[in-house]
């Protein structure tokens, strides 16, 4: 088991832990961001081959890394940015309505 895969697992579950246990809404968005980053890192790690070059074939090459996971990672990064923008807009909306960012207090106020 190599170290980078262990780092991916630790980052993923650190993000999940933040989403479950933290009370602040902005911290929850930070957790979502960390989960996304760990999954992108996993895609890039899958595409890597030892001794390979980047998938830009402008001269002679011997071994090229896998281009399909890199395209997926590009897609995931862009979609993640717009997703975080929507989540933060919802956070601002919630703050304007309830006056707090604490999840427990929001749940109390609603009931």
């Amino acid at each position: 088991m190599e170290l980078p895969y262990v780092v991916v697992i630790i980052l993923f579950y650190l993000g999940i832990y933040t989403i479950i246990m933290n009370k602040n809404l902005i911290k929850i968005v930070v957790g979502v961001n960390i989960v996304e980053s760990s999954l992108i890192l996993l895609l890039i790690l899958i595409s890597f081959k030892l001794g390979g070059t980047a998938p830009i074939l402008d001269r002679k090459y011997e071994l090229v890394v896998d281009p399909i996971p890199q395209a997926l990672a590009l897609t995931a990064i862009v979609i993640g940015g717009s997703l975080i923008a929507v989540m933060l807009a919802l956070v601002i909306k919630i703050y304007k309505r309830y006056g707090t960012l604490n999840v427990d207090e929001i749940r109390k106020l609603r009931g």
């Binding site: 902005i26 992108i40 890039i44 595409s47 390979g52 980047a54 890394v65 993640g80 923008a85 601002i92």
Partner: peptide
């Protein structure tokens, strides 16, 4: 280092630049 320059450029622009702006505006 892992030979993915496209993903690195996208992460530099979006992950380190745009997302930070959004978070600061929210705070």
């Amino acid at each position: 280092i892992l030979q993915a320059p496209d993903a690195a450029l996208a992460e530099a622009v979006i992950g380190a630049g745009l997302t930070l702006t959004f978070f600061v505006i929210t705070i």
